[in-house]
Amino acid sequence: MENWVQVCQVDDIEAEDVIRFDHGDRTFAIYRSDDDQYYASDGLCTHEEVHLAGGFVMDNIIECPKHNGRFDIATGEAKGAPACIDLRTYPVKIEAGRVVIDIS
């Protein structure tokens, strides 16, 4: 069952950047690529549970600020040690200028 929740205005995230979004007891990372595509994933690095929103997006890759673990922001694919487990990603859509994600 789908569970769409509003995250923020589209301009709340800069191009090629990431923000943290907490909902209930869950935490997510919401990304905007340099060509204005939006993506969402679990908010914690699968390596040592560091908030990915403290990292930076480069070339559609989010890099964890603690150990440089890297993930593809579109697919969640781990791009090599120390990130070995893929991130879970979530569907994203834009509605009336707002970023909305399906956290089901």
Binding site: H47, E48, K66, H67, A81, P82
Partner: peptide, 13 residues
């Protein structure tokens, strides 16, 4: 290369 990558990761943690 592999053990020391993980060792160094722990060093940073």
């Amino acid at each position: 290369s592999v053990p020391w990558r993980w060792s160094h990761t722990r060093h940073h943690t």
